[in-house]
């Protein structure tokens, strides 16, 4: 796969080469908040830490219409997904989360909605040179320049970006933008490696997950769950802002005679998440729900798909209203083992 250079002055020209695709990027005043389709004439910003809301919404929207129907009718109208999109400046942790979640959505059947979005999406990543306060990607198999899940990786080298194609999609993108690019040499690759190492060294938080996946089942009734969940408010912040959390609910929404079936994000931190019709709830309190969140990421998923379902982006730590800190919980888990 090839590596090219893009002079920053030619950034708008490069973006122009993506014409025909919807470009998702952090932009404007809301840049800190989320990735959103770029409005015409506005240059996508790349100088941001990471968005609060992960870009998983590009492949797993918070609300997805599965089909529409009329009450009493027999026709199902299935929305056509055909718009190609580019996620521009996605962080390696978030791209990696998609590679991880692919396992789930292709487990028994390929989820048609998820994979259609995936197929139409090109992921253009940006190497992290300034890790955030609660980043711990290097503890869970990622890194500031991890290529997993990405089609193309950009690295900010000061006046220019280094562009490395990772997949055929990425290669095609480089080809399409060929005229605004120059060939990259070993020097730039080395510089990128230096920046990556520097960034990795700047990651302050860490936990060694060795032994956690195998050990968690034995801690089922450990008092640590009561301790770490005591202050939990039971809100959906940690799960909704998690790039790998993928639980959903399916509901029919009826207005008059028109209806649609849609799938929306769900959260294991909500009381009604596993509530049975009978009123019985197998996870009746925040203790069981917190235990589930950690077990799902660090035990069940590993058991099933051989990968930890946490990319160490730190969002759940940054934004928990009551300082429930997954790194801290994992340390307590290790102590209890």
């Amino acid at each position: 796969m090839s590596a090219m250079l893009l002079n920053k002055e030619k950034w708008p020209d490069f973006v122009e080469k993506l014409a025909g695709k919807t470009i998702w990027a952090p932009q404007g005043e809301e840049a800190e908040m989320r990735f959103a389709p770029v409005t015409e004439g506005e240059a996508p910003a790349l100088e941001y830490g990471n968005t609060r809301v992960p870009p998983k919404q590009a492949v797993f929207p918070q609300t997805e219409t599965m089909f529409r129907f009329q009450l009493g009718g027999e026709e199902l109208e299935i929305p056509k997904l055909e718009e190609e999109a580019v996620l521009l400046g996605v962080r390696p942790c978030d791209a990696r989360s998609m590679a991880i979640v692919d396992n789930l959505f292709s487990w028994d059947e390929n989820d048609p909605y998820y994979f259609k979005h995936r197929e139409l999406l090109t992921l253009v990543g940006l190497t992290c040179t300034e890790p955030g306060l609660n980043c711990f990607c290097t503890s869970v198999g990622g890194g500031p320049a991890s290529k997993e899940g990405l089609d193309l990786l950009m690295t900010d080298l000061g006046d220019q970006y280094l562009l490395e194609a990772i997949t055929e999609k990425g290669e095609a993108l480089l080809k399409a933008a060929g005229e605004v690019l120059e060939d990259a040499g070993d020097e730039q690759i080395k510089e990128k490696e230096r920046l990556t190492e520097e960034a990795a060294a700047n990651i302050k938080r860490n936990v060694n997950p060795d032994g956690i996946p195998e050990g968690l089942p034995g801690l089922w009734e450990d008092p640590l769950w009561q301790r770490v969940s005591a202050s939990c408010l039971g809100c959906g912040t940690c799960t909704y802002l998690c790039p790998t959390c993928h639980c959903f609910d399916i509901q029919d929404e009826v207005e008059g005679f028109s209806a649609r079936r849609c799938r929306t994000w769900d959260s294991c931190m909500f009381n009604e998440y596993t509530m049975h019709t009978s009123g019985h709830n197998p996870r009746p309190s925040r203790r069981e729900r917190t235990r589930n969140r950690i077990n799902h990421k660090y035990s069940y998923y590993v058991d099933k798909f051989d990968v930890i379902a946490c990319v160490g982006c730190g969002r759940c730590i940054n934004l928990c209203p009551v300082n429930i800190d997954i790194v801290d919980i994992l340390r307590q888990v290790k102590e209890a083992l």
């Binding site: 809301v53 918070q62 609300t63 408010l233 039971g234 809100c235 959906g236 912040t237 909704y240 802002l241 609910d249 509901q251 929404e253 849609c262 929306t264 959260s267 909500f270 009381n271 009604e272 209203p321």
Partner: peptide
């Protein structure tokens, strides 16, 4: 993003059966 952290953190939002969690009938769609 409807995480309901505002509701859950509020000391005075304490209905046993919140209108937002109702599914049938669904007063506020998910």
């Amino acid at each position: 993003i409807r995480c309901y952290s505002c509701r859950n953190v509020c000391p005075l939002c304490y209905c046993q059966d919140c209108i937002l969690d109702r599914i049938n009938p669904s007063w506020v769609f998910r």
